[in-house]
Design a protein around this nucleic acid. Sequence first.
DNA 1: TTCAACTATTGAACAGTGTTAAATATACAT
DNA 2: ATGTATATTTAACACTGTTCAATAGTTGAA
Lengths: 207, 207
Amino acid sequence: MTKEERQEREREEMRVLILDTASQLIAEGGIEKLSIRKIADKIEYSPGIIYHYFQGKEDIIEQVLQKGYRDMLTGLNSGPAREQIEQSPEELLKQSLRQFIKMSLAEGSQYRNVMLNDSPSILSHTAVLFKGAAQERQALGMLCQCLRQFEQMSTREDIYVERTAQVIWSAAFGLILRITIEKGLPEEQREALIAHYLEAMLAIVTK
Amino acid sequence: MTKEERQEREREEMRVLILDTASQLIAEGGIEKLSIRKIADKIEYSPGIIYHYFQGKEDIIEQVLQKGYRDMLTGLNSGPAREQIEQSPEELLKQSLRQFIKMSLAEGSQYRNVMLNDSPSILSHTAVLFKGAAQERQALGMLCQCLRQFEQMSTREDIYVERTAQVIWSAAFGLILRITIEKGLPEEQREALIAHYLEAMLAIVTK
DNA sequence: TTCAACTATTGAACAGTGTTAAATATACAT
DNA sequence: ATGTATATTTAACACTGTTCAATAGTTGAA
């Protein structure tokens, strides 16, 4: 079976080669400028071959973005998690959210590459990041777990905590969007807005 | 001067004809499917002419979206404004936000037409809606005015109220995105989520 | 009325795009 | 060596946005 194994491995290598190249092209010129033919050029194959490894352009884009989202959330997981012992729920919540927002805004992040774009279609494909299926549920789960540690939440039903998590999560997403779009915003004001957001979220869970 | 007047009027008529046609095409097949040539087809002109009235495709799209955004916000303005006498700040805030969210989600709204799209590029061009320059500032102004009526806010500095408004606004945007993307969400759960959001925002301003 | 000027409009071309399908090359198993 | 399956190319199709020279149409002056 070592034949089909290697065959499949080579197939996978080609897949990641295409995906990485697409990712790089997106980072350079934005999603708008990505084209099948440019990918083919860069990997020195003919355009047609790509359709033997992917369904089409949309398929490639979706996979690139999903990967970016996944990377971001796993980074979030391994973030302040280790020293979560002896930390107040308030600080834990704030730190987690702050880290997520920071990573989303970070230079070079897929997230940012997708969203920062001079053309009017700034937010192309951002939805995938929000959808993100499995990853998003995971993040919401973490958030719920975090919220449960607040005494004001401990008596609430599950659905209440879940919805609170969804609201906080959506709000974070909206904030990231806002900051990303408002390009000229100075560092200091951006920080203040994030801080204000964190306090507001805290008000929600401690009310 | 009646010559140049009519000339300019006819120019404007052509402009709105193109814009309306573009709007219609977007409503039918999403932004992805919009093309200069299809617009030209529908208005029975040749493609080239469009460049005598607009700078290009992006220009057209931007204007269509800005109009959608403007319509939505003026609708919000004339909404519960008339009977705002003898209404608690809580109710006023909730009603305003709810109406904005409802209008954003409403069937046939430009907003929705832009965002609801089967392709991965669900959120193409949504940024314009968020940017919306003048319109957004107007909305934020209204929100600030609304927040000022809360006693907990009256003692705060302007910048505090402003940032609170920005957080609430961003959160609304994030929520709209979330609901829009989560297509399968049943009416009742959607309502519950919106209600939860409204309560959360209330918690922020009454904390 | 004729002529010039200006605008609106066309048509064709350019340089791209995603995608498909038949033809070809390559690697593998019998 | 032969046949089979996979990988890859080539060429074509049907589009796309955009530009520009040529034309049609209108307007104002001589």
